[in-house]
Design a protein around this nucleic acid. Structure first.
Lengths: 221, 221
DNA sequence: CTGTGTGAAGGCCTTCACAGCC
DNA sequence: GGCTGTGAAGGCCTTCACACAG
């Protein structure tokens, strides 16, 4: 606030992935806090929600700028705006879903994505039964049209919910069509060019973490 | 193999959570490899699938025992059995799903859980429309019966797919009924006793990681 | 020669502790 | 008094590099 040099403009250098994932969590809880009428939070209050330390919360945020107010804490709406800008969710992302089975359909019907800036504009499947239909207003195309539609609609992100055995081929098609990043729900490791961002989500894996934790009485995390 | 002291019996000491999560990934790919007819893998081949280093794969496994064969690598079926034992998925886990909306239904229909030792025996919802029905042969009860059913069926793990605002109450009910661990799909931080294992899965959070990665051109991970 | 298991080294993240500010 | 931002310290995980085994 004192000097003219605000360094809150861009990602400063290399940020640990784990810091970014915590930022998402902070954002989520901040939004809950605002809805509950809270104007400010301290780092220790935020930390308590997750079992982190207050220093960690401050350090995480300090990677990107000076968002806090000594003696006050962080103003919720202000910090929400900052984190959204950092994550890149202050703008809209154009998304597609490939695979309209149980999981794909469930995700298409989920309202939470749109609320955070992710607009799903097209879905794909190979089953002629669903091709041509709409789910929550989102048209379902044949996978054969994937490249054309992705290019025409300038789709940036793809979510893959096809069976594991088809996932690599779909990923290759998405990359060929110019996609920038992929969330892979199929239980298989994908091989992609370095330039493409990849996040893997495997629900079985998550249950296995839980089983291990219970079997070895590690308690909460 | 030389001495009588095999230390492959239990979790030796404190294992980093990230090691356990990689074990799940190894298991998944090993199962793919077996299906493809492969008998053995080396640490470097396994590592390449994920972009890890070979040393990391070996170190991860070395936490739990000596599973490799110098000059050969790891025998796939052997290592699968070891990892399942380590994760605790060589036995069956009794699981419940609380919330039978889009996400809950999709997960109930997913066949992958059963294949890894997770048996979903009951689901719960508050909507009288679905209570009393079955999904994939799994009965849906009213949430009011949650405690009774969890105790009667000795349910060990719970998956929560209710709206965020209801999630803490459901979690408390599950804990009161003696549950051992929870996977929380609701986009909210839960507060639980230390003795209860907790894994959080937030799909919006995953998309945000991807957005950040793309926005900052970090490429694959 | 191929490939594992592992001390040692290195690096990265977390925690500590406190100066500074409201 | 309350709370942030941050160097310094500490700890934990990853990588290196090599002895050893088949």
């Amino acid at each position: 606030m004192s000097s003219s040099k605000q360094k809150t403009t861009a990602v400063p250098h290399e940020v640990p992935a784990v810091v970014v994932s915590r930022l998402s969590l902070y954002l989520r809880e901040l939004q809950h806090l605002v809805r509950a009428g809270r104007a400010t939070v301290s780092s220790s209050q935020l930390a308590t929600l997750f079992g982190f330390t207050d220093a960690q919360v401050r350090k995480d945020l300090a990677y990107f700028g000076h968002f806090g107010h000594p003696g006050i804490g962080y103003r919720c709406t202000e910090l929400i705006a900052e984190i959204r800008r950092i994550l890149g969710t202050d703008r809209q992302w154009i998304v597609t879903m490939v695979g309209v089975g149980n999981m794909g359909r469930a995700l298409l019907r989920y309202k939470g994505f749109a609320a955070q800036g992710f607009r799903v504009v097209a879905a794909f499947d190979r089953e002629s039964r669903v091709v041509g239909s709409q789910i929550e207003g989102i048209p379902v195309y044949d996978v054969a049209q994937l490249g054309d539609v992705v290019r025409a609609q300038r789709i940036q992100l793809g979510m893959i919910t096809v069976p594991a055995i088809q996932a690599q081929q779909i990923a290759d098609d998405l990359v060929a069509a110019g996609i920038l990043g992929i969330v892979n729900f199929a239980p298989v490791a994908l091989s992609l060019p370095e330039s493409i961002s990849l996040v893997g989500v495997d629900l079985t894996t998550e249950l296995e973490q839980l089983a291990f934790s219970v079997a070895n009485r590690l308690g909460s995390r």
